[in-house]
């Protein structure tokens, strides 16, 4: 009985771990890793709901009557592709950010941005006062 929902709980644990990495870690690569963990948990969720006790892989054969549900498999194939696409794009952004900011730590990037904003504001105010 307890084990009947075990998959779901693992899924939720993994999901929350992924989310936690995204929230609490400042490293941009780590965040993408977190996102991967998060997405993979969803894959697990879909696939485990497709499972039928005593079923086999949904490839038709003569002597088998019970198959697992093929539809979630199809959906997750698509979702995996979406996942890798996102990861690739995210990583290329990380590369560019590293080039532009010299860092891939969120804090340091924020700091640089805020500093720039402040500097701009300061310059503006000066300009305004002069005008």
């Amino acid at each position: 009985m307890l084990m009947d929902l075990f998959n779901h709980w693992v899924v939720i644990t993994l999901m929350m771990s992924g989310l936690y990495i995204v929230i609490a870690h400042g490293n941009l690569i780590k965040k993408i890793v977190g996102l991967s963990v998060f997405q993979t948990s969803v894959f697990i969720f879909y696939i485990s709901m497709a499972k039928v006790d005593g079923g086999t892989a949904p490839i038709l054969a003569d002597d088998i009557v019970q198959y697992s549900n093929p539809l979630p498999h199809v959906l997750i194939l698509t979702a995996i592709v979406v996942g890798i696409a996102t990861t690739a794009l995210g990583l290329s952004l990380v590369v560019r950010i590293k080039e532009a900011y010299g860092s891939i730590e969120e804090e340091s990037i924020q700091q640089q941005d805020n500093q720039q904003q402040d500097n701009n504001a300061h310059a503006k105010r000066k300009q305004e006062e002069e005008a």
């Binding site: 485990s48 497709a50 490839i59 979630p72 498999h73 997750i76 194939l77 592709v81």
Partner: peptide, 13 residues
């Protein structure tokens, strides 16, 4: 979980 296609893809990706 009998999801061989998915497993294949996940392993590759």
């Amino acid at each position: 979980m009998d999801a061989v296609d998915v497993a294949f893809t996940e392993a590759a990706v």
